[in-house]
Simulated scan of single mutants.
Amino acid sequence: MKIEAAVSRPGTPAPAFEELELEAPRAGEMRVRIVATGICHTDVHEHPGRHSPQPIVLGHEGAGVVEEVGEGVRDFAAGDHVILSGASCGACPSCANNRPTYCDQAMPRCFGGQRMDGSTALCAGDETIHSHFFGQSSFASHVIATDRTAVKVDKDLPLEKLGPLGCGVITGAGSVIEALKVGYGDTIAIFGVGGVGLSAVMAANLVGARRIVAVDLAEDRLELARELGATDTILASEDDIAGKLRAITGRGLDYTLNTTNVPAVHTTALDCLAMNGTAAFVAAPLGQWAPAMFPMLAGGKMLRGILGGDASPSLFLPKLIDYWRQGRFPFDRLLTFYPFHDIARAFEDIEAGKVIKPVLMMEANDAA
């Protein structure tokens, strides 16, 4: 069928709209009509072609309605409402342990721009267009997604708000709840309060952390962090951030979560830990960086990388939705809506830090 999609091509400032051909779902796949999709920094970083082949349709925070299912799909039917998350094989040890973000095939399935057999679901005439970005490629009116990529949700939920749950929100909240298992009375500092960091702030507040410190360069984001549960905030441009953080508790933090790729911030996130503390990160340092090993040894400290919040979308996203219904996890306060055809403006705004989580609406008149 013919669809409209925003295609990333070399040398362009943002994805541009084209009419493409989308093939029918194969075994284990479904066709989903996209209602809305979030834009993640990963999309922005991948647009120039860092890891994925081009031309490609990006987008990996989609939400929509199932229109057709392929052979062997048992848990979904036409008309179901779904959130789309990452791709995984379902057979490796990580998938068997409900940790699909650490799937043995995670990189080729999410960044390869094709199915594992080398085929794609998209074309423009005779030209191959790469698809299946994170198992979905949701910068499009319709997508082909695997059944493992989809999470069914109740039809009374606002689909236009749910897409960001599949990546940015699950990464922040899952890092706190699933990976670090922050509990009542614990202390945590969160570096960078964009979509991932603010989701972590809300999760730490949800589980009853005693001190939740937000660190960022932007005063307006720190103010929002306070509204969402941060007990303390520090402007990242101040001197001796690690010392200020240690002073808040008198001994340092039990946990830190770094959402930035700044090497100096990675150092600070380790320096401010209490004995036996854990410094977690969801973005690798940009450039050369090495931790100070003796303080880690002497303090029994841990440095830990986290992908996708260590969370299984099919198990964790329904919990976050329940918390949202209860008014305890107001992730929708992070969202700014754009008509689908304003994708270039949305890319500009997220790169400039004007918005936290842009969401593209497939119908322009639905945008707020």
Rank of each mutant, 00 (worst) to 15 (best):
T146K: 12
T146G: 14
T146P: 04
D147W: 12
D147F: 09
D147T: 15
D147Q: 10
D147P: 05
R148P: 14
R148C: 13
R148K: 15
T149S: 06
T149P: 08
T149G: 03
T149K: 11
A150E: 07
A150N: 09
A150K: 07
A150D: 04
V151T: 10
V151R: 05
V151S: 03
V151N: 03
V151W: 00
K152L: 11
K152C: 11
K152H: 07
K152G: 05
V153Q: 01
D154R: 13
D154M: 06
D154I: 08
D154K: 15
D154Y: 06
D154H: 14
D154V: 11
K155N: 14
K155C: 09
K155V: 14
D156Q: 14
D156S: 15
D156H: 15
D156A: 14
L157K: 08
L157H: 07
L157Q: 09
L157W: 15
L157C: 06
P158S: 06
P158L: 05
P158G: 12
P158K: 07
L159G: 07
L159D: 11
E160I: 12
E160H: 09
E160L: 04
K161S: 14
K161M: 06
K161V: 08
L162A: 09
L162E: 07
L162N: 05
L162R: 10
L162Y: 00
L162H: 01
L162W: 01
G163N: 12
G163P: 13
P164I: 00
P164D: 06
P164A: 09
L165E: 01
L165Q: 09
L165H: 02
L165G: 12
L165M: 10
L165V: 08
G166Q: 08
C167S: 14
C167Y: 09
C167F: 06
G168E: 02
G168H: 10
G168T: 06
G168S: 10
G168Q: 10
V169S: 05
V169E: 08
V169D: 08
I170A: 03
I170E: 00
I170P: 00
T171W: 11
T171A: 11
T171P: 00
T171G: 01
G172Y: 10
G172V: 12
G172L: 14
A173S: 05
A173Q: 02
A173T: 02
G174I: 03
G174N: 04
G174V: 12
G174K: 11
G174Y: 03
G174Q: 11
S175L: 13
S175G: 07
S175M: 08
S175H: 09
S175T: 14
S175R: 11
V176G: 02
V176N: 04
V176T: 02
V176M: 00
V176I: 01
V176Q: 13
V176F: 00
V176A: 02
V176R: 04
I177G: 08
I177W: 02
I177E: 03
I177Q: 03
I177K: 13
